[in-house]
């Protein structure tokens, strides 16, 4: 577990009373506001459960963050070109990424992170040179890894990025921790990716999804009884040149943004990992996002 003292400023918990019998234990992880909602009025008990969730979020962040030099991701990057053996949890995430890569015909690819060296989505009009992208593409492609769980060989120059699945995975992990300890209603929400065990007695959870097409305070309210919701979008990060908006969803096969991707896709599924994967894949289908979601037969909310 992440020691509380190690980076205290980030690891702070705040308890908020949201209703007569509703508490929120709030914290920040993975650069997102996170909270655990509990049907409870007992601060001590709620804080204990909320702490458990927060510690799990911080643990997953610390272990897989590409921004930390003590993470497993950093260790994998340091050992490029060498055959290494990863721990069970990392192996299961890489296995999952591998299956997603196959199932999506290469659209979902945890090696695509290197493309960000060419693309800086800062709202400017600095579109990268096509040559720069061509130069990076050889470093993208999950099939270039040697992966035989738990042994991994990451070729020189390549990177792994668990950012696309880490947050949803952390939600599910935290959910399981809580579900093993508590049968009363709760909801785990990490920056809009969330999962609930069941409705509170007064009715379904009211979940606010940010509407990226308007100001950030405007929200679409969904009723969630149980299960998970995950949202993917390219709302805030883009480049604009000659009136063309280049969203930050990149097709790992071309190195260029996916055209006509929806602004935001929210998907309901039984686990947050599954919901997150479906919403990400929908975005990667660009103009075909709605068609893709219909084919999957899931409940979804799509904003163009």
């Amino acid at each position: 577990m992440a020691g509380k003292a190690s980076n205290a400023p980030d690891e702070a918990l705040r308890v908020e009373v949201r209703g007569e019998n509703l508490l929120a234990v709030c914290f920040t992880a993975m650069a997102s506001p996170c909270e655990t909602l509990l049907s409870s009025t007992v601060d001590a008990a709620a804080l204990e459960l909320g702490t458990l969730v927060a510690q799990e979020a911080w643990r997953v962040e610390k272990k897989f963050s590409r921004y930390r030099n003590d993470s497993v991701t950093a260790w994998i990057h340091e050992n490029r070109g060498t055959r290494i053996e990863v721990d069970e949890e990392t192996a299961s995430l890489i296995d999952f990424a591998s299956q997603c890569f196959d199932l999506s015909d290469g659209l979902f690819d945890i090696t695509s992170g290197v493309l960000r060296y060419a693309w800086k989505f800062d709202g400017s009009d600095r579109i990268p040179e096509a040559a720069a992208i061509r130069h990076l593409l050889p470093l993208v492609g999950f099939e270039k890894l040697e992966w035989q769980s738990p042994r991994l060989l990451l070729p020189a120059g390549m990177e792994l990025d668990f950012g696309g699945i880490g947050k949803e995975y952390a939600v599910d992990r935290a959910y399981d921790l809580l579900a093993a300890r508590r049968s009363a209603p709760f909801l785990v929400n990490f920056g809009g990716d969330l999962r609930a065990n069941r409705s509170p007695s007064h009715g379904p959870w009211q979940v606010g999804i940010e509407r990226p097409d308007t100001d950030r305070t405007a929200k679409m309210i969904l009723d969630l009884e149980h299960g998970a919701l995950a949202t993917s979008g390219d709302s805030r990060r883009y480049l604009l040149k000659d009136g063309v908006r280049y969203g930050h969803i990149l097709d790992p096969r071309t190195g260029w943004p996916v055209w006509h991707a929806p602004r935001s896709v929210t998907v309901a599924a039984s686990s947050c990992t599954e919901a997150g994967l479906l919403s990400t894949l929908a975005l990667l289908h660009g103009a075909r996002a709605r068609e893709y979601l219909e084919e999957q037969g899931v409940r979804y909310w799509l904003l163009q």
Binding site: E89, S92, F96, Q99, L103, D172, R173, D176, A269, T273
Partner: peptide, 22 residues
């Protein structure tokens, strides 16, 4: 599509099942 969705669910379950075990 239906098959893909089943495999996707299976993949999620495998990941989370492994997590639950660990």
């Amino acid at each position: 599509p239906a098959n893909a969705r089943r495999r996707l669910i299976a993949a999620s379950c495998a990941l989370l099942g492994a997590a639950a075990r660990s």
